[in-house]
Simulated assay, not measured.
Amino acid sequence: MNELHDPAEFRTRLRGWLDANDLTPPDDHSLAAQMRQFARVQRALYDADWSRYGWPEHAGGLGGPDMLRAIVGEEVVGRRLAEPGPYSMLEVLAPTMIDYASPELAAEMVPKLLSGEEQWCQGFSEPGSGSDLASLSTRATPRGDQWVINGQKVWTSFAQYSHRAILLTRTGDPGTPNHQAITAFFVDVDTPGISVRPLHTMHGVDEFCEVYFDDVVVDGSRMLGKPGDGWQLAMDLLPYERSTCFWQRIAYLYARFDALVAAAKRQGAAVDQDLGAVYLALHTLRCRSRATQHRLAAGHRLGPDTSIDKVLLAGAEQLLYDTARDLLPGVVELEDDPWRTEYLYSRAATIYGGTAEVQRNIIARRLLDLGKE
């Protein structure tokens, strides 16, 4: 066994490498700078092989348990070398390509994402299909060996910086049941007919985009899986979103918690009870996420139980930033400060990735068997 496949040894050596290699981000908080920094970090990690561990060899990786990927993400995001948003696309979309693309396409494309050469995005949500993903209307129509795509996506993170997109479309006859009529494609964002328009949100960062598809021609070899596999692809994506991606975001929230403690001390605030509640929420979330991460590593199939992780994450994130607003008077309301941007973004924690209401309904109906009412 490769000794670097042991998580403890892997973490120790990775920390030593990160200590010895300066990947400090520039003093530029713009989204464009964050994306450049993410690509820079990924290039360095890939060239040193760290970001190849935990990925299968047939897709350009070096093998080893999936847990190694979580360790890399935790160390990189926890040190604030890269932001969790761009990093999440890596962990969600690369496994999807490995599982659903042809072996040849996965072997060609996945290393481009792992190395920071490319950025990808996820075209799922639509203006009329948010939580009800099965009702999406973007349509792919067959034309010989190709497909022609028309429709619109929205809330597509980082589309303006992306080279490729994993896209869900509607295929099949009009009478086909919704879940069986969804097909996924791997689309080049510079294909003629694709238009990207960033959305300016209240937190002042144009992370989300509208993406329009007007007679976009995609080769049939870019289909992921078979016609009708799109719904299962979306369901298989969730375990990665709510395990390794959450683990990275938790590391980020802990880093911000430490920064809040330091800022509160400088102001001489009496904060024991307030910060204690935040720490308890973060620790509860981390314990739950650790158990989820180990279940995934053991080969267990994750299901509706990950809705618990989502509810805990949203609650902990909002509590952290509510506490920052209370302990740092005026920073959120009056100053152009990262705390302001992050506070505003945290308001969406109970919306993105499945609303809190939907998650609690899933917990009630599918885990507690409480029925529909």
Rank of each mutant, 00 (worst) to 15 (best):
E342C: 08
A32W: 03
P198E: 11
L238W: 06
R340A: 08
P142E: 15
S30C: 13
D190V: 10
I362N: 01
V218P: 00
A277H: 09
K226E: 11
L285G: 00
D369Q: 12
A48D: 15
L199K: 12
L260V: 07
E317Y: 04
E118Y: 07
E74G: 09
F213H: 05
D229P: 01
D28E: 11
T176H: 01
L233I: 11
I250M: 04
T176F: 02
R286T: 12
M1F: 04
E241Y: 03
F185I: 07
P95V: 08
M109E: 12
L237T: 07
F38E: 07
T350S: 14
E317G: 07
D309L: 09
A101H: 06
A48Y: 07
D145A: 14
D99R: 14
Y100K: 01
K112P: 07
L90C: 09
P26Q: 08
S115F: 06
A259V: 03
R266P: 00
L327I: 08
A107H: 06
R197N: 07
F124A: 13
T191W: 01
I308S: 06
H300P: 04
T169Y: 02
L4R: 10
D145H: 12
R36Q: 15
L14Q: 09
E333P: 10
I351N: 01
T323F: 06
P84M: 04
A234E: 00
P329S: 13
R325P: 00
Q152K: 09
P174R: 01
G144D: 13
D6V: 08
S307N: 15
S30V: 10
R143Y: 07
V311R: 06
S243I: 05
E57M: 09
G315I: 05
I194Q: 03
V110A: 02
I362W: 01
G63K: 07
L260Y: 01
R290T: 14
A82Y: 01
F186S: 04
C209S: 14
V332Q: 03
R295E: 15
V92A: 13
F246N: 02
A33H: 03
L167N: 01
R143L: 14
P338S: 14
W147I: 06
S221K: 10
L238D: 02
A181Q: 00
P174H: 04
M235W: 09
L253K: 01
E118T: 12
L280S: 15
L312Y: 04
W55I: 08
V331G: 05
D47I: 06
D190S: 15
Y345F: 13
L367Y: 13
M97T: 05
D215E: 15
G172S: 05
S115P: 07
A33C: 10
I250C: 06
A94I: 08
L133M: 15
A59L: 08
G144Q: 12
L368P: 11
G193T: 04
L238H: 08
R288T: 10
A314E: 01
R242S: 11
V211M: 05
E83H: 13
F10R: 03
G303A: 15
L313F: 08
D337F: 10
P338E: 14
M35R: 06
R222T: 02
E342F: 09
T176D: 02
A324T: 07
